[in-house]
Measured scan of single mutants.
Amino acid sequence: EHQTACDSYWTSVHPEYWTKRHVWEWLQFCCDQYKLDTNCISFCNFNISGLQLCSMTQEEFVEAAGLCGEYLYFILQNIRTQG
């Protein structure tokens, strides 16, 4: 039997508790949902936990993801305040 992915999907966990996999799933979702250019995102810069992600500043997001960084930063802040 296969496990259902939704059990541990990033949407069901507060961002501060995300694993590295959750972070990448979220990035992929943002790219799909908001039509962000994946080429401007250095995924290696996001090989981090949710706690590390949440402690990043807006400037660090821009450094890590170029033009997309600002969008990603605000998307994350939205999730954190709603969560």
Rank of each mutant, 00 (worst) to 15 (best):
Q58H: 10
T4K: 12
Q3A: 04
F43K: 13
L72W: 02
T38I: 14
W26V: 01
N78Y: 02
A64K: 13
A5R: 10
F46I: 05
C30Q: 02
F74V: 14
L51G: 12
S49T: 14
L51D: 12
T4E: 10
L36C: 00
I41H: 05
F29Q: 10
I41K: 04
N78C: 05
W26H: 00
Q33W: 03
C54F: 01
N45L: 08
G83R: 13
L53I: 01
I75A: 15
E60G: 05
V62I: 13
C30G: 00
C40M: 11
V23N: 07
W24Q: 15
V23W: 04
P15T: 02
C44I: 13
W26R: 03
H2G: 12
L67V: 13
E70S: 09
T57Y: 01
T4A: 11
I41G: 03
N78V: 05
C68G: 12
K20T: 07
Q82F: 09
W24S: 15
H2S: 09
L36T: 03
Q3G: 10
D37W: 00
L53N: 00
W18G: 01
W26L: 05
C44R: 13
Q58D: 02
L27G: 02
Y34W: 06
F46P: 02
C44L: 10
Q28D: 14
C30R: 03
L72G: 02
A64W: 05
K20I: 10
E25D: 06
F61P: 03
G83P: 12
V13K: 05
Q77K: 10
T81W: 06
E25C: 04
C54G: 01
G69I: 01
Q58Y: 06
D37P: 07
I79V: 10
D32I: 01
K20Y: 00
N78T: 09
L27E: 00
K35C: 13
R80G: 03
A65E: 00
W18C: 05
L36R: 03
E1L: 05
C54T: 04
C40S: 15
D32W: 06
T81V: 10
C54E: 02
C44F: 08
I48D: 00
C31I: 07
A65V: 04
Q82H: 13
L76H: 04
L36V: 04
I75H: 15
E70D: 10
C30Y: 01
Y34Q: 05
I41M: 07
Y71M: 14
S49R: 05
W18T: 06
V23Y: 04
G69P: 04
L67G: 15
R21I: 01
S49F: 04
E25P: 00
T81G: 13
D37V: 00
G66H: 00
E60V: 03
T19Y: 03
L27A: 04
E60D: 14
C31W: 03
Q52W: 04
N78G: 11
L27P: 02
T81P: 04
E16L: 11
L51C: 11
E63T: 12
N45S: 13
L53R: 03
Q77Y: 02
C40W: 04
I41D: 04
C30E: 00
A65N: 01
Y17I: 12
G83K: 13
E59G: 10
E70P: 10
V13R: 05
T4I: 13
D32V: 10
Q28T: 12
K20R: 10
L67P: 14
H22M: 11
L72S: 03
Q77T: 08
K20A: 08
T38H: 14
S42A: 11
F61S: 04
D37C: 05
G83Y: 08
Y9N: 08
E59N: 14
N45G: 05
Y17T: 13
L76Y: 02
E63A: 11
T4N: 09
E1V: 06
L72T: 03
F61A: 02
F74I: 12
E25W: 05
G66V: 01
Y73N: 01
V13P: 00
T57P: 05
Q58A: 09
Y34C: 04
E1I: 15
F61N: 03
Y17H: 10
R80I: 12
T38C: 08
N78F: 06
N78H: 05
C40I: 06
W10R: 14
E1K: 07
N47L: 04
V62Y: 07
G66T: 03
C30S: 08
F61Q: 02
C68A: 13
I41S: 04
C44W: 08
G83F: 07
G50S: 03
I75R: 14
Y73V: 02
L76Q: 02
I75S: 15
T38G: 08
C54I: 11
D32A: 14
Q33G: 02
L67Y: 15
C54H: 04
E16Y: 12
P15R: 00
W24G: 10
N47S: 06
E70K: 12
H14W: 02
G83D: 11
C30N: 06
Y34K: 05
W26P: 00
H14M: 09
F46K: 03
Q82L: 06
N47D: 13
C68Q: 15
L53A: 01
A5S: 13
L51K: 14
C44Y: 10
V23F: 04
L67R: 14
V23G: 01
I48G: 02
N47R: 10
G69A: 02
Y71V: 13
P15F: 05
K35T: 08
Q52G: 03
I41N: 01
M56V: 02
E16A: 12
N39Q: 13
F29W: 13
I41T: 04
L27T: 04
Q28Y: 08
Q58C: 08
L72V: 01
L27Q: 02
E60Y: 05
Y73L: 02
F74L: 14
S42Y: 00
N78D: 15
D37Y: 00
I79F: 10
E25N: 06
E1Q: 01
Q28E: 09
Q82P: 07
I75Y: 13
Q33K: 15
T4G: 09
F46N: 04
A5Q: 13
V23E: 03
E59P: 08
A5L: 12
G83T: 11
H22C: 04
R21Q: 15
W24K: 14
H22Q: 10
Q52Y: 01
V13E: 05
E59W: 07
C40H: 15
L76F: 09
S49V: 06
E60M: 06
R21H: 13
R80K: 13
Q28S: 15
L53G: 02
G83S: 12
L67H: 15
C31L: 07
I79T: 08
Q33F: 06
Q3F: 05
E59F: 07
Q28G: 05
P15G: 00
A64M: 07
H14C: 07
E60H: 09
Y9C: 11
A5G: 11
H14I: 06
L36D: 05
C44A: 14
F43H: 10
H22E: 12
W24R: 15
F61T: 00
S49G: 06
M56A: 00
Q52L: 05
Y17C: 12
N47A: 08
C44G: 14
R21P: 07
S8P: 11
C68S: 14
S49N: 14
C44E: 15
T57E: 12
N47V: 02
F29L: 05
I41R: 01
F46S: 03
Y73G: 02
Q3C: 07
H2N: 10
I79R: 11
Q3T: 11
K35D: 10
L76T: 00
Y34I: 00
P15N: 04
G66W: 00
C54R: 01
Y17L: 11
T38R: 14
T81C: 10
S8F: 07
F43L: 10
Y73W: 11
N78E: 15
F29P: 06
A64G: 09
N39R: 09
T11I: 07
T19K: 08
I75G: 10
E70L: 05
H22N: 15
Q52V: 07
C54K: 06
Q3S: 09
A64F: 03
I79S: 06
F46D: 05
N45H: 11
M56D: 00
C31R: 06
G66M: 00
W18K: 02
E1T: 09
F46Y: 02
